[in-house]
Design a protein around this nucleic acid. Sequence first.
DNA 1: CATAGTTTCATACGTCTGTTTGAAATGCAA
DNA 2: TTGCATTTCAAACAGACGTATGAAACTATG
Lengths: 223, 223
Amino acid sequence: MATDHTRSAILTAAERLYADRGFADVTLRDIVAAADVNLAAVNYHFGSKDELIAELFVTRSLATNRERLNELKAAEEAGGGRADIGVVLRALVGPTLRGCLGPDKQRSDAARFMIRASIESVPPIRKIKNREVDHLRKFAAAMKRALPDRDEVDLYWGLHFALAMAHQTIRDTERLTKLSDGKCDLNDVDAMIDRIVSVAAAALTANVARSKAGLRVSVLSAR
Amino acid sequence: MATDHTRSAILTAAERLYADRGFADVTLRDIVAAADVNLAAVNYHFGSKDELIAELFVTRSLATNRERLNELKAAEEAGGGRADIGVVLRALVGPTLRGCLGPDKQRSDAARFMIRASIESVPPIRKIKNREVDHLRKFAAAMKRALPDRDEVDLYWGLHFALAMAHQTIRDTERLTKLSDGKCDLNDVDAMIDRIVSVAAAALTANVARSKAGLRVSVLSAR
DNA sequence: CATAGTTTCATACGTCTGTTTGAAATGCAA
DNA sequence: TTGCATTTCAAACAGACGTATGAAACTATG
């Protein structure tokens, strides 16, 4: 009651299980067993399984977005209303990557839960997820401020690619580890963030002098 | 019998449904309804649901890998045993991207099925998927031949990022379309492949003159 | 045509799912 | 304590799932 122990035990257990095993493989009975509460407690406290998932998602979604925007805002204020493109991208992918791969177990569950949610499309989440676009628009705007001369479409692609690299890196660490025989160090989170940000930033800045057509042709001609 | 109509109808319907809606949401009853065959036909022809999925995956996996390797081989032979890095990356991501987003409906189902399979980790597939690493090793080797001076670890990351951008682009076309208000054209598949390949290639070549440390610091200092 | 082998079909089985129920337990105010 | 509201609990529910069964329909060989 005071802290509603049962309720939060369910949330914690559910988040961890969903993060570890995905939505499809986890049943309410798994969750209540992990939380050590009665089966009916879920429906009593949350109404339904879907509402439990939805609550988990909105909570974490708001937290992630807040963290990203704080980092962005701090950077832009420090730069007098404009931040370097690398810093903008870092604010975008940093929180999630640090969360997923950092040492904090609770944060890791939370971040990995969000990755699952962004991949496995479960009905209660799908409805809410549209808001994410509004959130990303703020980053697109910051990127535009960082690179005012850059074609808008390039910026959207850059943002898209940055998120793609971050998500795939979290989701499929196993394959990269195997492929590289462990040479790609996935424990050094900061180095990894640097790598992703620098690739995305390079894609947006390296050839700003060249024309778009020139870039295209140089690749096309290699076919 | 002659063509085993029932068997192939099941395969076709299953592939389309799994591609559209994912593994979790599709039941055998959905599949047999779409294929217009009897429920028991699945177990009669394939043994079990898992074996059906496995057959689907193995078939498509082999086909994709063959297509990629053909493209790589042709390019390397044309270049006297060595292909430009852009061409190697194109052979890696091209077949899947063209398959998923191209006009051919059957191919699109097949490619999108493979994307689902690479994301939603269902037991019958997980076991087989380890072979993919062996397949990717061949591309890592080709990349090494294209860029012999480049640090091995950078190449693995580059390969990883190229696949990441390709997969995310296929999986989440909706978000990018919304974010860009339709300005990012996802129908022009070739332009999209160019974009992904050029970003990945740029990440691997643009700063070959600079030291790795230099690149890192330039980004780190922007924090 | 008759017969053996293959394929289809309706139907049912057992299990697992999310949800509901009504009683028991608990906490707290008067 | 008594009384009332909240929370827990064991048990059961209806429905959906993958799978199994045995009879019917079909195909093709002798």
